[in-house]
Structures are given as C-alpha cells and as structure tokens.
Write a protein that binds this DNA or RNA. Structure first.
Lengths: 330, 330
DNA sequence: TTGAAAGCGCTAACAC
DNA sequence: GTGTTAGCGCTTTCAA
C-alpha cells in the first residue's frame, strides 16, 4: 500500500506538505504542488480513510436513514437516496445507509463510533421517538419532514400547505366553484407525518380565499373505499366539479370509479393530486399534480448538513415551494 | 470522548484485554469480562470506527452499488438494498451506498481508501465495463446478475432459466398446449443483463420437454406495442391459450388489451409472468408469477461476501430457484 | 513556504 | 489469562 510518506519521499517533501497540498489548508508553492501531484499520480496514492478519520476526527461520511414501512412510496425514497448520494459526492462525502428498523441504536452507533459525521433522517413523524436523541447527539442532522415541535432541529420538506393551496388555485382558475379534498386515511391525520393536516389546511384556506365551497374526506387506501367514496361524493355533493387527491394509492381507483359512473374527466370532473409524477402519469387519465421534489429535497438536505458541519448557521425550517404540473385531468 | 484506555483503567485491566474482550479473539476470565462489560456500559464506551479500521485494516463496511437506470424496477432495488443492510448488520457491518453513475472510479475509491472491505454490485450487464476492475481489485465482491464470462467472480441471481421453465410447467400442468413468451424489447436480447435470453431458453426447453407448441415474441415496453402484439398473437396463433410475460411494464397493458378483445382471463387465456409481486398483484386480473426474491438474494450476497472476507471458498455461481405464486390469471 | 514530530484510538504481536 | 508496546497512516500543531 502506498502511503503519504512514500509520496513525500518521491516528491522530495515532507509528509505534512503532501497532506496540506491535498487539503489546501495552507499555501503551497506552485512547483511543489505540481511535483506532489505527479508523485501521487505516479504512485497511485489514495489516503487511507480510517487514518484520516482518526487524525482529523472527520470521516467524511454522512448517514442516511431510510424508511421501510408500507405507505411510503418506494420510488420516491430511492430517488431521494440517490440524490443524497450524488449531492454528498459533490462535497467529497460518502453515504452510509441505515434502515428505520435500527431505530435510535443505529443513529447512536454511527454517531458515537464516529463512523458518520452527520445524519439525514427521512420520514420524520409528528412525534418521532428519535427526536430527543437527535437533539442531544453531538452530530449535526437534517430531518426530512416536520415534527410537531421542530425546535432545536433542522427540517426540510415540500411545503404541503402550499401544495394543497396550489391545487385549489389551479381549480379555481379553471372556474370550479365546488371542490373536495380526498385525503389520507383517518388514522394518518391523528398521528404520523403531519403533512396530511398541512395539505388540508392549505386546501381549506385557499378554497375560502377563492370563495369556493369545499369539503374534506379522509379515505382508506383501498379500491373498495375509493369506489364507495366516489359514489357518496356524487350523491352528497352534486355540484362537485373539482377534486384534490392526496392519497397516492387512490389516484387510479378513484379515476376508474368516477369514469365507471359515467363522469368524463376533465369535462365533468377535474382531478388534481399530490402524488409522485410516476403515479400521475400512469393514471387512466394523466393527472395534474404536485410531486414531492425528491431530488431537490435530497440535494438541499446535504447542503444544509454541510453548512452545519462548517458551523455556518442554517434556517430551522426549509419549505420547498410546490410545482404544479398540468396534465389531461384538468 | 471515552476511549479504550478509560475503560481499561476503570475495569482495572489493560487496554488490550478490553480489546480482546470486545473481539473475542482470545479467552478472557469470566470475571474480567464482566468487569469490562460493566465499565463499558457505565462509561458509555464506543470504539472509534476510524481507529479500529486503521489498526485492524478492516472497516467493517461493505459498499453497495445500486443502479439508477430506467428499466430497473425501483421497488425491487430498494427491497434488495434493505435486505443487504439488514443482513450486513447481522455480521456487524455497515453499508455504504454508491450509485452506478460513479462507475469504476467509485469502486476504486472506496476500495483503495479502505473505506469498504468488500463490494456488492447490482445490475451486472453481460459485458459490464466494471468486470476487469472487479477482477483485479484486492477486495472481495459479489455480483448480482451474471456477466457473459463470470470466471474469477462470484455471482448470484434468480435462476431465470428455471423461472421460464416454471411458468411453462405450470401452464402445461393446467393443460395448455400452445403457449407464447412475451419477452423484453429486442434490444435487451442483444446486450444488457442476459436474463432475457435465459428466460427464453428455459421457456423453450420446458415447452419442448412437455411437447407444447411455443413461440417467443420480444416486445417494446409500451401500451401501444402491447396492443399491437396482442392482436397479432390472436391472429397468427389462434390455438394460443397460455402466456408467459417477461416484461414488467407490459403486464397491465397486455391484460387490458386481451380483455378488450373479448378474451376472458383465465378461461380463454391463462397468464403467467416473471415480474415483481407488486406488479402481479395490482394487475387487472392478479397474475400468477415468479418474482426475483430480492430479500433472499440480498441476504445471500452478504453471506457470500462474509465468507470471502474470511477466506472461506464460495461457489462461483449461486442460482436461486424460482418460486411460482399462483393467482387468478391461471 | 516548509519540516519535524506528536498524537488520533485502537489492535495485535510479543512477553510473561 | 493478562499486560506492554509498537505501530496502523494520517493531520496538525509548533518551529523554523
């Protein structure tokens, strides 16, 4: 194995000079730097990660905790993870993958052993059990999602409130006067990630702002529930012409249910959804939608983390503005 | 930070004894071990990962390279990654996530810097450009998928040949006499992962073995192509009563196309597929299918890698036998 | 602008 | 069964 002393000898300098040439932490004469770089290339030198971590107390690794529970749309998680890896590499960092399953112990382990310098935690729940730990851990972290009390933490996510509003704005603009939100299962509103409430708030506020009649309907994510709800909606809200769906598995069944009842989309009923682009595109009628910008959230998370590692202050909350993509359903 | 010398002092032993108590690499008196464990707990000691890696030349990290290209079913990749992480933890290892994009350089980097002890590479192509590197790297690796020449490598995957055969066996058992394989796009047969050919071989061999008439039909993964092919099949193969679909995006469109042409499934046409369970379950008629056992492949990959790290010989090829799940389509 | 040298915290001979 | 100690390869003071 080639080590820094080999490079130093080959370039006719001291090991520290090689180290500084590599880190840029002190000025090096152009000529010296060139010689060092040449030696590195010639010898194929690669600094030993462990030795580096030990001497500098920086592993250049960030840990990423991904959720595995059902109900989280898997492709979005992947997209996010990929974007974290890509962004991390831009800062010369690598990504260690942890699963939710490991819980607090996993976080503590990678932090306490100095395996990771910092943490990104996905799928943060309103009353996430990991919050106290994350607050006391001596390593910076960024949470994807907003807990009930984000104090002392750094959080980022799509602005779900604004997303709900954006769908309503779009429907209002198209002239709809009576709209409904089809939301997450009742259970989700009570606990979990909190974005369900935020969408509903944004939806209602925007509807009120536009002077529209609106109603909110939690729904279980099953085709049967979709069918039942579709029928009920038409009966109880005969004026209904616009819908916001915030329940990924229901996009297709709902569309099919309404079509089966003879409604044409978008002529009789306009659909909008908050769901992955993939889902929106593959629906029977491609649905106008707002997606979680996984790529952007991932990249921004890493940026926030890097700033925190440099002790640059960062905002406690980062809300990514929604981007609505119009499709055939409206 | 609590270090091993602190623990040693607290327990009244030498640092090496603590180290050996932790690693189990030499016998320790029951009483000493108890005192050490108590000190560790009391002081909250966690060995520094970098220091460990430096002293032992083992990072206890394995690198996992995941594909991001389209055409790879994302949930399967996630399932696989999760199972690798879980299995790795059982061996006290962590997983570093790399993306295909980084290419050779990523592999070389984590190997040469001793960041990772070993590598798992997913989505290996027939003539994968990384093969020469993986052969010469001084770190053990396991490939998911089989290249054209697997010599000097350790590969694992579903036995696609047997999977093709299993679908045919199932159809033969149900009394079908004329069957067809709807395969990957023509381009895939020429290059890429090679499982397309293997499925076709297994399909044809089994059909011949059962004395069935069979035909193979590559198809582009678009609903239009599905519709066209469905029509053509009925025209050119009027006796056709059984199908094997090995083209994930086509499962739904094909089913819909046949239904639209008035065929009842399974009465007029029996369907089987090689696709993720998720796809099979969500089809208009749930499809009898063979899935890539991502969980098992992930766990086995890690096991193979761990054996290689201990210099225990492992088989060059590991083929996971297919498991067919019968559903409504047959 | 560069060099010398003291660690970083741990493991694994080697010695007893 | 346990202790002593020399590194592992790098970074970073301190000194020049």
């Amino acid at each position: 194995m080639v080590k820094i002393t080999d490079v130093a000898r080959h370039a006719g300098v001291s090991p520290s000079t090689v180290s500084y040439a590599l880190s840029g932490k002190r000025p090096i004469t152009e000529d010296t730097r060139r010689r060092i770089e040449e030696s590195i290339r010639e010898l194929g030198y690669r600094p030993h990660a462990g030795a580096r971590a030990l001497a500098s107390s920086r592993s250049n690794v960030i840990a990423l905790v991904i959720p595995l529970r059902t109900g989280v749309h898997v492709p979005v998680v992947m997209q996010f993870a990929a974007s974290v890896v890509t962004a991390a590499r831009r800062y010369d960092h690598d990504v260690l993958l942890l699963t939710q399953e490991e819980g607090d112990e996993g976080l503590r382990r990678v932090a306490d052993t100095s395996l990771a310098d910092a943490l990104i935690v996905m799928d943060v729940q309103l009353h996430d059990t990991r919050l106290p730990l994350l607050r006391t851990l001596d390593r910076p972290s960024v949470l994807i999602g907003f807990p009930a009390d984000p104090s002392g933490l750094t959080c980022i996510d799509l602005d779900f409130r604004a997303a709900g509003g954006a769908c309503v704005d779009h429907l209002a603009e198209k002239g709809h006067r009576t709209i409904a939100l089809i939301g997450s299962p009742p259970a989700v509103y009570a606990r979990e990630t909190g974005f369900a409430q935020r969408v509903a708030q944004g939806f209602t506020a925007a509807a009120d702002g536009h002077g529209l009649s609106s109603s909110v309907h939690p729904c279980d994510p099953t085709p049967a529930a979709a069918k039942e709800l579709a029928g009920r909606l038409l009966r109880t809200h005969p004026d209904l012409t616009g819908l916001v769906i915030h329940n990924e598995p229901l996009v297709r069944p709902l569309t099919e249910a309404f079509q089966a009842m003879g409604l044409r989309i978008p002529q009789d009923l306009a659909l909008t959804a908050i769901c992955p682009d993939e889902t929106a595109e593959q629906a029977p009628v491609p649905v106008t939608s707002v997606a979680v910008p996984a790529e952007e959230v991932g990249a921004k998370s890493v940026e926030l983390l890097m700033r925190k590692l440099e002790h640059v202050p960062v905002p406690q909350s980062t809300l990514i503005p929604p981007l609505l993509t119009q499709r055939a359903s409206s």
